[in-house]
Each structure stands twice: as C-alpha cells, then as structure tokens.
Design a protein around this nucleic acid. Structure first.
Lengths: 318, 318
DNA sequence: CTTATTATGCTCGGATTGAGTATAATAAGG
DNA sequence: CCTTATTATACTCAATCCGAGCATAATAAG
C-alpha cells in the first residue's frame, strides 16, 4: 500500500527522491492595541519576532501556537490566523542542504504592554514602518526621503520602459502625484523599499549599503517582512470581519473602538460615518453604562454582540 | 553567534528541544477553465491532487512548484498563490513522530483539458462539490439531501443552545430560510458537511459511516478540503484582482469572459452590468477584430490590458 | 457663564449597483 | 425575402451606499 502510493505520487512529483527532512519553525506576529497604540511583541535587542521550532507533542500548528502564547503572555489569544510559509534556501546561512521552513501566524490579544514577558517587549509597530502612520497626515519622511530616493532608483534603470515601470510602481504604492494613499499596501511598500535597497535588510543583501536608508528600525532576518505581511492582512481583514473586537476590552466607547481601528489602519475615519457603519451592522450593543472618561460629554459603553459571529459570514469596520 | 541566537529564541520558544526534522510536501490545486468548465488536475483513481516532496535543489517553494508544473503541463503557469500549510499529526497514519508538512498552492493555467498529462486528468471541480454550482439555479441536492440531513444533525445535539447554533450555521452556509447564497463560503460549507459526517472523509474519521452521504466525489486524504480552500480563495480573489485573465486565451469576447467568471463563482451575473464593470475599470481593450462564433450578432474581441497590473493595486470582476 | 471637548442625531449630494428596456447585427428556416 | 432565434450593445431608472458636513447635547475647566 505504502509502495503503491509513492509510485503514483512520483508520476507527477516535484522530485524523484526524498529530502532528508526540514527544520520547521513557527513565527508569530502578536498584536495588541492598548489605548490606541498598535504594538507587536518582539524579542531581544535585534527585535526578533517570537519563534521557535515546532514540537512533536503539538497536535496541530494552531494549537501549538495558542498554548505557547497564552502561557507566555498570560492572556488568551482571541484570534489566530496563518500568514505565510517561507522556505527559501538563503534564509539560514548554515547548512545549505538543511532548509528552514518558517510558518508564520498572526495573533491578536488584549495584553497590556506594561506586563512584559520575561524577555519580550511590546513595541509600537510604526517604529519599524514610520511611513505607514498617516493618522496625523502623511509623514514627512515620505516626501523628504522616500520620494526622491525612489525617483533616483527608478532613473537608475537602464531602459526607458523599466524606468517608467519602476516609477509607476512607486506612485501606486505611496500615492505620489495626488494618487490616494492605500493603507493596505504595507507589504508591497516594504518590498519596494527592499528592492530599491532603501531598508537595511535590502541593503544587506545587495552588499553595497551605499544609498541613504529610509528611517525605520530593522528586525532580525526577514522578520520585518513577516510583520509587514501581518499588518497588511490585519488592515484588510478588519474591513470585512469583526476581528477588532479581539483587541478591545469587554466594554468600550465607540471612540475607543474607532481609535483602535485607526491605529491599525494608520488612517483616520469620519467619526459620524464610523458610528453609522457600526450601528447599522449591529456589531455592538449598549451595556447600559456610561463612561466618565476624558473631558467632554459622557459616552455610552458598548460591548461586542457575539451573536454576529453566528449570523454574518461577513461584517466589519469600513 | 549561533549559540547566542538559539539561547535568545528559546526564552520564548515553542519548545526547548529541536525536532528531528519534518517531511515537506508540496500540493497543487491547478485550475483551468476551458470553454466554461472549471477543471482541476487530479492524479489517479483516488483523485489526488498532484503533489510531491520538496526538493533541495529548488531555490524557493514558488519556483519549485512553477518549474514542476510547467514541465508537466507544457503550459506556463500564469498565477501562483500559496493557500495554506497543514501540519496536523493525524494526516499521515505512519510514524507519528515524523510529521508531514503539507504546503498547498493555487495555480492558474490555460491548459486544454484534452492534453492530458501522463497519468493526470482534468476533472470538473463540481464533481467534488455538486452543491456549489448555482449557475442553473440552486441544485436540487441542497433541498433534497443537505437541508434535511443538516436539520437532523442540528437536532442531534444535546443542549438546546447547541441545536440552535448548529442550525444557524447551516442557514448561513447554505442560505436556507430565504437567506442569500454566498458563493465564497465553499470552505465553510465543506467543513460543515465534514463535521456533520455527511461527506466520506468526515464519515471515515467518525468511524461509523451510518448517515446517508451527500453526493460528491471524495478525494485522497484531505485533498478535497484543500480544493475547497482553493475554490474559495479564487472566488474571492476574482472580485478584486484581475486574475481571471490568466485563464483566458489572448483574445476573447466579453461573453466568454463572463462565462469564465460564472464558472468559477458558480453563479450567474447580469450581462449588461458585467460589461459596464469591466469597461469602467478599463481591464480590457479591443483587438479590432470580431468573433464569428456561435449564432447571433458578432462580438468584438478583447484582450487584457496588461498595464492595469502596473496601475491598479485593486481591480477585478464584481 | 464662557470655552473647550466629546457625543450623537440628521441631512444632502454624488457614486455605485441591481434590474430592466430598447435596439442592432448576425444565422437559420421557411 | 421575411420571420424567428440568438447574441451584442446602448441606455435608463431607482434604490442604496458613502463621503462630508451641519447642528445640537452634555460634560469639565477656567
């Protein structure tokens, strides 16, 4: 039976012989948003994402990650989602025969940043992507550094068509020339800067780190790319799934909810329209209580209507 | 250096010791749509998806898959997208210590189904999911078999709340009680039928295959779940990315394009509105030629405007 | 009692979208 | 040649959605 199966698979198979096994690593993008600050759990001075080898005792990838994170942070993980699996050869500089498979996950938690884990620290994710925060207008770094650097990079191409293509790509990613800023393109923007050699990781690979780098903290290995993947995924997801509530306390005001969404998306939204959307989708219900809060008229407190998870297959903020 | 790194990672790590390596397998959902039939490449009588172990000579997962598929089908793969990575223990019944990591991909090609590969055959994907094709109205199997079976399954639950939850889930997935059919829920529907023991794979696991099964061809292992993942992904993707064109010949009429979209989505669309959408998004341009075709007024031939890939980050059909 | 700040209700116009009507251009059958 | 069937293509209309703003309410601070 075993032999027959192998034979059939090999008829259309990637290879004819088995590899000697790969090392499998789990990497987590753990996100929380305490009072309007989007933070991610990092380890050590190199700002690595928490990760470790897959243990054989784990029943599944998901449950393994969940157990581990809950034990470490002391808070339940509300939401877990697989992000991407990397397996490129050059990721590990060691034995080129032994490949590292890196399976990355996005996890949402209500962890307070004050309660630090043994050696981990929660960092604002815009430290790594200063150009992604447009809540207070477009960051100056875009027009001061990124735009000229990308224009130069575009002009370095040999052929005219290539130059035009490069610049077109920059326009789409960063919204130059009055184009709109699209907050969901976080990964594409990082990859563009990487290719242009404008972030440390990209310059590392290209050898010559000649060009001036764009501000923004680097991470270990390709972890900044994984983080960019997680941010992009979360920014699209909140629009059609009620995942923001995994980041909220049990009771909250609508403004707190809005601030959380804005922190994730990196853009501001129209307050009245935001409320209209939330209410007409019936995502929340009043708790009956009010919030004293920071100056101004007291606000009603709301809680997530958990029944929506049963009802709507799609529903989200914006 | 190596030692320091390991020590740091272990502070927050999934485990304290290394596994002895896992076997990595690539699995492909290869899709084509020759004249309105959505087909998928399967291998052998058990209808397995093509798969094989990852070879160490491959530079990356993506390139490995691409090389292999193009060699086998003789056609270039227009589009590749990673679907999901499975690593559950019980997937392979053999050595429980040696885990199989299965990385699945979705690939789109213009392969003609007539040109069969050595032992592979292209099958209409609705053979595996008869309840997913609503192009000619809702399939009778839904009201005749699925609805009563799911109602019974719901009623088998011990507690009242659980019964209500189960039935609510069935309503959302299949659109009972005048709810709308949502074609994107392919995976959720399959998982529901699986849990209810109404598909062969689910009955297999539950041991007693007592209940009457829903019609639909099973696949090897969990390949039908992977296929459901691919279909669901494709159905959502065509709405905001111009991936359909990877499945089209160089020149096509708007009706052919519409039929392809409908084949994938499993629902029909309003013809005039479909054209309006395609044109206002400037996804296509006239070739200048007309098509003789099947009776009726000749139609203009169009081709994909490749420039949109540079321009729009988002654009799709519907 | 004025000012600042936040909460909340409501309106309005433009864009999008679902659904239909109308007309044009061809082939096939008589 | 004329009718019918079939497909292509243009245009209309209304409901809804959505961005943006106005207006008012309720609190704290000075």
């Amino acid at each position: 039976m075993q032999e027959k199966k192998s034979a059939r698979l090999n008829e259309i198979a990637v290879v004819g012989h088995h590899d000697h096994g790969a090392q499998v690593e789990l990497t987590a993008v753990l996100v929380a948003v305490p009072n309007g600050n989007p933070v991610v759990l990092t380890i050590g001075a190199a700002a690595a994402l928490p990760s470790g080898p897959l243990e054989s005792s784990h029943r599944s990838l998901q449950s393994g990650l969940r157990d581990w994170v809950e034990q470490q942070t002391g808070h339940p993980l509300g939401y877990i989602e697989q992000l991407y699996t990397f397996a490129d050869r050059d990721r590990s500089g060691e034995d080129p025969e032994r490949r590292v498979i890196s399976i990355s996950y996005l996890g949402l938690t209500r962890e307070e940043p004050s309660r630090a884990t043994s050696s981990g620290s929660w960092r604002n994710w815009y430290e790594f992507f200063p150009w992604e925060d447009h809540r207070y207008g477009a960051p100056p770094v875009i027009t001061d550094v990124i735009e000229p650097a990308l224009r130069q990079w575009a002009n370095e191409a040999a052929r005219e068509e290539k130059r035009r293509q490069r610049w077109q790509r920059a326009i789409v990613c960063f919204g130059f020339d009055d184009q709109n800023w699209n907050e969901e393109l976080t990964l594409q923007r990082y990859e563009l800067l990487y290719e242009a050699g404008l972030v440390e990781e990209g310059a590392r690979r290209n050898g010559a780190a000649g060009a001036q780098l764009v501000p923004g903290r680097a991470m270990q290995g390709d972890h900044r790319r994984i983080l960019a993947t997680g941010i992009a995924r979360l920014r699209t997801k909140i629009k059609y799934r009620p995942v923001v509530f995994e980041l909220m306390p049990p009771a909250f005001t609508l403004l707190q909810l809005q601030r959380t969404v804005e922190a994730l998306a990196g853009v501001t939204v129209h307050k009245q329209n935001f409320r209209r959307l939330i209410e007409q989708q019936e995502l929340v219900e009043e708790t009956g209580q009010m919030s004293s809060e920071t100056g101004g008229r007291p606000a009603k407190l709301f809680q997530f209507r958990h029944a929506v998870l049963d009802e709507h297959p799609v529903a989200g903020t914006k």
